[in-house]
Amino acid sequence: MFIQISRRDKPSPTAGVVRLSEARLGARGVIVEVRAEAGVETVGVEELQRRLLEFGFVEGARLQVLFEGAIGHDPIAVKLDDMRIALRRRDAANVYLALDAA
């Protein structure tokens, strides 16, 4: 059990960490950090972080970018563990993703 979890949470050593806002279509990986830094003026960075966490954007969650909009590749639809969530790239900037090695 323990080994399983730690392997699941371990970031890939080769593929690097990106912000979800910059992840390409089809990118897969594990969330390594959800920060409270980038944000929108109206709700504040802390609140945006809490909303992301509430939707399941938590450290250790598996994520894949499934779809993106036609204009500016925005918004994106992601598979987050077993849920599907749509969000704008600017709101995704707080989520750091360790990409799987190709």
């Binding site: 909303r51 939707f55 969530i85």
Partner: peptide, 15 residues
């Protein structure tokens, strides 16, 4: 009115 304020857009895509 809103001085270009933007709200976050986070939405579940249900099954």
């Amino acid at each position: 009115f809103w001085r270009n304020a933007v709200e976050p857009f986070l939405m579940e895509l249900p099954t």
